[in-house]
């Protein structure tokens, strides 16, 4: 038997410590983590990591914080299955494994000086949050900022404190909506699907780039609204979710036509996506 070292394995997860665990709702938790080797993750907003629980498995998770926020990083995770539920049982001080960062991330340099229209549906807020934080930390580099945030119902809206702080700033406009508002629920925002916010926004299409993340069904309607507003196809940028097993362009699960979402994405502009036959937008 001829053996090689661990570091030669692309599947080797780096030990990472949970330093903070905050419940966002019944189903979602925000984790603050730090690599045990002391290094920063050196990620680009919009990239993701493979989170590993030995004995349970791995799950691709967007990095929910901006690299401008220091060496620790954040992941916001909804419990849906084996790995994500196991993560929800962990405590500060526990160790998990991280591979990555993977994927292309948002085209940060292309976004400089642009007006940005963020459109988040449900937990699509997670991948966008890294970019929103980045933009707010580097505020002078960017133009006008609008965030449209839609959830199914008020209880599903996350990051209240953060939204409240952002609302208090005068250099970012936040508009939120819920699909429906059960009786007796407190809600001051709009009621209706996310596209009902579009008539109320005022943008200069030539200056604006839209950044979109949400459930698959949302994309078609949002892209149509963006096009109606006059935003160029190249300036409509979407972060996609696909099944992923490796994160490194080998396992084949994330493929759309010949695009590997884990390598060539998860961020694509609409002009590119439009050419993919397996995407129906």
């Amino acid at each position: 038997m001829i053996n090689k070292s661990n570091s030669e394995s692309l599947y080797f997860p780096r030990p990472t410590k949970l330093i903070d665990v905050t419940a966002l709702s019944e189903r979602e938790i925000l984790f603050r983590l730090r690599l045990e080797d002391g290094n920063a993750l050196y990620h680009i907003p919009g990239q993701f990591v493979e989170v590993s629980i030995l004995g349970t498995g791995e799950a691709p998770i967007s990095i929910a914080s901006s690299p401008t926020q220091g060496d620790a990083f954040e992941l916001a995770i909804r419990a849906v299955g084996n790995v994500t539920q196991a993560l929800h049982r962990l405590q500060p001080g526990d160790t998990i494994g991280i591979r990555g960062p993977f994927g292309n991330g948002f085209p940060v340099s292309e976004l400089k000086d642009r007006d940005l229209l963020f459109i988040a549906g449900g937990i699509g807020f997670f991948p966008l949050r890294s970019m929103i934080q980045y933009v707010l930390d580097m505020r002078p580099l960017f133009g006008k900022i609008i965030l449209l945030y839609g959830c199914r119902q008020p209880a599903e809206q996350l990051f209240h404190q953060e939204l409240k702080e952002w609302r208090e700033r005068d250099d970012v406009l936040i508009m939120d909506t819920v699909d429906r508002c059960p009786p007796e629920t407190e809600w001051e925002g709009n009621v209706g699907v996310i596209t009902t916010l579009f008539p109320g926004i005022n943008i200069l299409p030539a200056r604006t780039t839209a950044l979109v993340a949400g459930p698959p069904v949302m994309y078609r309607y949002v892209v149509a609204e963006c096009l109606k507003k006059g935003i160029a196809k190249e300036r409509i940028i979407l972060s996609l979710e696909r099944r992923m097993k490796c994160g490194i362009g080998l396992c084949g699960h994330c493929q759309i036509d010949n695009a590997y979402v884990c390598l060539d994405g998860p961020v694509f502009n609409y002009a590119k996506l439009e050419q993919l036959k397996e995407v129906e937008l």
């Binding site: 053996n3 090689k4 070292s5 661990n6 030669e8 394995s9 030990p15």
Partner: peptide, 21 residues
Amino acid sequence: PLMGFKLDGKISVDSMVGAQP
């Protein structure tokens, strides 16, 4: 096999990168 590990809280990944000539 990609790696072996212990579940005692600490990650200890034994390499399985090897081959029989």
